[in-house]
Design a protein around this nucleic acid. Sequence first.
DNA 1: GATACAGCTATTGTATACAAAGTGTCGTAC
DNA 2: GTACGACACTTTGTATACAATAGCTGTATC
Lengths: 240, 240
Amino acid sequence: MTSRWQEELSVSARGTGRISDQHIVDRIRHAVLTQRLPPNTRLPEVTLGEVFGVSRSVIRKALTRLASDHVIVQQPNQVARVAAPDVAETREIFAARRLVEGEVVSLLCGAFDGAQYGALETLVHAEQLAYEQGDESRRIEQSLAIHHYLADHSPNRILGVMLTDLILRTSIVIALYKRSGMTSCYLENDHADLLALLREGKADIARRHVQTHLESLENLLDLSAPDTDIDLASIFAFNV
Amino acid sequence: MTSRWQEELSVSARGTGRISDQHIVDRIRHAVLTQRLPPNTRLPEVTLGEVFGVSRSVIRKALTRLASDHVIVQQPNQVARVAAPDVAETREIFAARRLVEGEVVSLLCGAFDGAQYGALETLVHAEQLAYEQGDESRRIEQSLAIHHYLADHSPNRILGVMLTDLILRTSIVIALYKRSGMTSCYLENDHADLLALLREGKADIARRHVQTHLESLENLLDLSAPDTDIDLASIFAFNV
DNA sequence: GATACAGCTATTGTATACAAAGTGTCGTAC
DNA sequence: GTACGACACTTTGTATACAATAGCTGTATC
């Protein structure tokens, strides 16, 4: 039973001439980021090996790194799966991201040159356009590009890579807890306002703006649903 | 040429019955943390395999994880080495730790119960005692234990593991840039004062206290020295 | 004496074989 | 029909063999 994602990944792999473990990590990260690899998806080593045309050794290294980044979860003698954080962890991920992205934005205030502001502006416009055209997947891509741009240009590179990881983990939990009725996790003008604040160089205001933005995003999710595991635990409690 | 650290690690390994990659990661992390594995130390896979009595497969997995945690650096076809961040990265590590540990402490304010305050107090006293007795290595161990205690009990577990990593990376750069004359990186009463603030539950003051504490620690380092690579570059400059 | 080159050694990269553990299925007993 | 157990299959864990690459040492040459 060959599922959809195997084809997607192998197509991506075919484009590049050679395949290193770094490539594999990037492909899988990107697939998770764009929600083509939903939470809990099984990732058997042999299957991935066939998809990318390498042996398990290389896959194993890639999976180890992905597990370190909390993109997948690996338990002994069990198949690796795309991570599926519970509600509590989801809140913690958002809180951590508010802290880190707030600081990064604060550091970034007034630090860009004209070309960089231009690049950001292009991304913001593209997102707005995609939203107006109802192209949801393209809108998400642009939105992610904006946040990644901030992470990649963080004056503090440590915080930059932390933010990159947190953006990915945020994508995972959004995929998990997005309200079914909700067509889109979009907050109009938030990114445009942020860009303006960056230009003006008001660090504290910009920091708070990002944090509010992320809070709004979190509030769009349905975090009331009890977790599968927690359900089991409560059942046992009743039996005892 | 069997060097010192190989013996140290193997002794640690012998104590535990079985050896998993997690054990190996922990051993190496601890050895780096306590500065028995100084920055730039070479870590060949076969040697580690002999030390721990496992094959390269297991070592390889451990090294991959350590590299993900920035404890070691791995370049293609080259021996893994204990990380040795440059001055710029050192400053960034400290800045990141100030942000994260400040937040963790803020979250922790007034959150401990009596037993937990007692545990912390014991650690603080032990550190003070070790300092008075001039037992530097023991003092460092206690100091690390205090900060690890905070990280391990962070209400936000994401920030907790981030802090654990940053503590380790801080240890590495302290080993690298400690002033030669300086006998100790100790700031009297800082930890005791922090404990008092945690008890009182003044989150913002406690946060600022930790951040100041970390700034003082950074200022004890000699971050003016040019990097090894830069030294070589300047020598070449003279010859040309 | 300096330099370029060749070959050797040390070390990592990759694939594969086998062992061990988990997962699911089928059949049988009741 | 259900519960239990045996067995087959899937998947990961570990070791090892071989290939490929980096770094070093010695030597020949200018």
